[in-house]
Design a protein around this nucleic acid. Structure first.
Lengths: 335, 335
DNA sequence: CTGAAAGCGCTTACAG
DNA sequence: CTGAAAGCGCTTACAG
């Protein structure tokens, strides 16, 4: 049996209530008895029981991380572990615990979230994705359970604390960067257009092109899923692109493979800039110019603001923008 | 305030102890009253409070995942999320919860593990790495806290349930596969030789070569960290290798980049086989032949055996070997 | 088959 | 500044 508050109380010759107050460092207790009690806690190796504290306090010091519906591809995208690393950093430092919620379907996910909340296992959630109409977000909102979103929420926007990049501006910045290298014909190859982040990036690209008065033929935008034929069509557009923006490093890897199959060399014939700056951007051949969106910080800030909200419900809604920066490597060059 | 066992008891006209027994589906309760109580539970939307259950039962239904000391590179290696996906699958289906433990140093990690155990936050751990002398494993062992290891444990081996591939055999199989393609000169480029998995793979390679009577000049083994010069030296060995085994897909990506810088084309001049079969193996150009080690199952089985151990301490120690298979793609071809 | 009561290990008004 | 007592929401021997 582990040592309890009673054992400490007995050895320190005080009531358990006093020990409890020492644990909380209550100002009501004299320094003298605090010191005595602490000595005994140390001597006995006492740690307060988590379940008992949770039961008495009605908080769990635990947060849930809601993953998108489980899919190999999503898990293999390093976005997830890197944001988790950021979340974990903050959470661990503040003695919270982190629970991952996964599910094969959104119904399964919802029922797990509901169960965890109703059984009082977590105090709040970080939602690691954002989509148009999400029954989980609706549930959290309705039950007034604290949550923060990584990405741009699609529902209850003004009431939802979220952490995101300015993906629209990032795409514009990439266009500016490329025009600075004298590129005038810039194409965009994008990932899943269900995801808000991709929609934003595409929009930023389109607006930047328009504002710069650059040509934007239909063929310049290629969406996933695409194949070798689509890529060939893109390269044969009139005028043909000299640069290409790709929505994600993993997609960039797929695109590059097609380019080399089509005999197009990078960056000599085509410059490429991508997003996310994953480790593999550096490993690619040539190394990829990519927009670093600081995924770690997205996670870190999401955890921070969630826990602030949990500990003080009056905390205001926040929209936190994590800065991006273009990391220049060899896949892009002056025209 | 959430609905409690008392509310249910009152509405169903029974004692709280009866409700509790219904929750546990105790055979002592008649089907008639079970039905009545369940109806009320449903009507009220009752779910048992997790903290109260934990406190009364002295179990948490929660397991900890101990990560290696936090490092960007490790988190960006898809091994981690994919094993987590496997763990998560089992854990969620069995109504357990999963807590990730990270730390920047092994001391930090240890103190967090100790804290989580002493405060009763988890029932056991999955250790996601294995190293020679590990203070965390020593602590868990000494305190008789249930844990399972993914990989090959280095301490208390016969008492430690673990899930692993037969990495030694896998490397041998790769040699056999390559000799089947008529390759006789096979080099090995390896990752971090601190990690057991890499040591095993290297050993399997060496033994297989020896058994097949194939040449094994010193230059054939290149260890991390290596640079372009090391690669050049390898390619100039006498006789020069016609095939190369690489310890990991990410390393393979780095190697391939160097090869192309040295003007060596794959697979025409050099066949390559790697390990892990990450998503990027398929995305590489050419697609990489890689040994699929079924990382998902490593995680799934680790969770399964840990929870079995937690729920029945008499459960015997198990060593579980997850099968591997070579996934042939275009980076390797007949000589 | 069911209930009353004690207990799990904490916290916190209340009283002094 | 400190203590006795009730309470958080469950479980489980014990009695019937």
């Amino acid at each position: 049996m582990a040592v309890t508050i009673k054992d400490v109380a007995k050895r320190a010759n005080v009531a358990t209530s006093t020990v409890s107050r020492v644990i909380q460092d209550s100002p009501k207790i004299s320094e003298a008895t605090k010191a005595r009690v602490r000595k005994e806690m140390k001597a006995l190796g006492y740690e307060p029981n988590y379940s008992a504290q949770s039961l008495a306090n009605r908080v769990t010091q635990s947060i849930g991380i809601i993953m998108p519906e489980s899919d190999v591809a999503i898990f293999q995208n390093p976005f997830f572990p890197e944001s988790l690393r950021g979340i974990s950093e903050w959470v661990n430092e503040h003695n919270y615990t982190l629970s991952i919620v996964t599910g094969k379907t959104s119904d399964e996910l919802l029922s797990r979230v509901r169960l965890m909340s109703r059984t009082g296992r977590v105090d709040g959630y970080i939602v690691l994705y954002s989509k148009q109409k999400d029954s989980i977000v609706e549930y959290l909102h309705q039950e007034k359970i604290p949550y923060t979103v990584i990405g741009k929420p699609q529902q209850f926007v003004s009431e939802t604390t979220h952490v995101d990049n300015d993906n629209y501006q990032a795409a514009k910045d990439v266009v500016t960067y490329l025009t600075g290298l004298n590129h005038q014909r810039i194409a965009y190859v994008g990932g899943d257009h269900e995801q808000i982040v991709n929609i934003e990036r595409l929009r930023g690209y389109q607006d930047a092109l328009r504002e710069a008065g650059l040509p934007l033929p239909k063929e310049y935008v290629v969406r996933e899923p695409f194949n070798l034929e689509d890529m060939r069509t893109l390269l044969q557009a009139t005028p043909p692109p000299t640069a290409m923006i790709v929505s994600d490093d993993l997609v960039a890897m797929a695109v590059q493979k097609m380019l080399s199959q089509l005999g197009v060399s990078m960056p000599e014939q085509l410059s490429m800039v991508s997003f996310n700056n994953l480790m593999l951007a550096e490993l690619m051949n040539p190394p990829l110019t990519s927009v670093d969106i600081d995924i770690f910080t997205l996670g870190y800030q999401a955890a921070k603001s969630l826990i602030e909200k949990i500990e003080d419900p009056k905390e205001l809604t926040k929209h936190i923008i994590v800065p991006h920066r273009i990391v220049e490597r060899e896949s892009s060059q002056v025209l």
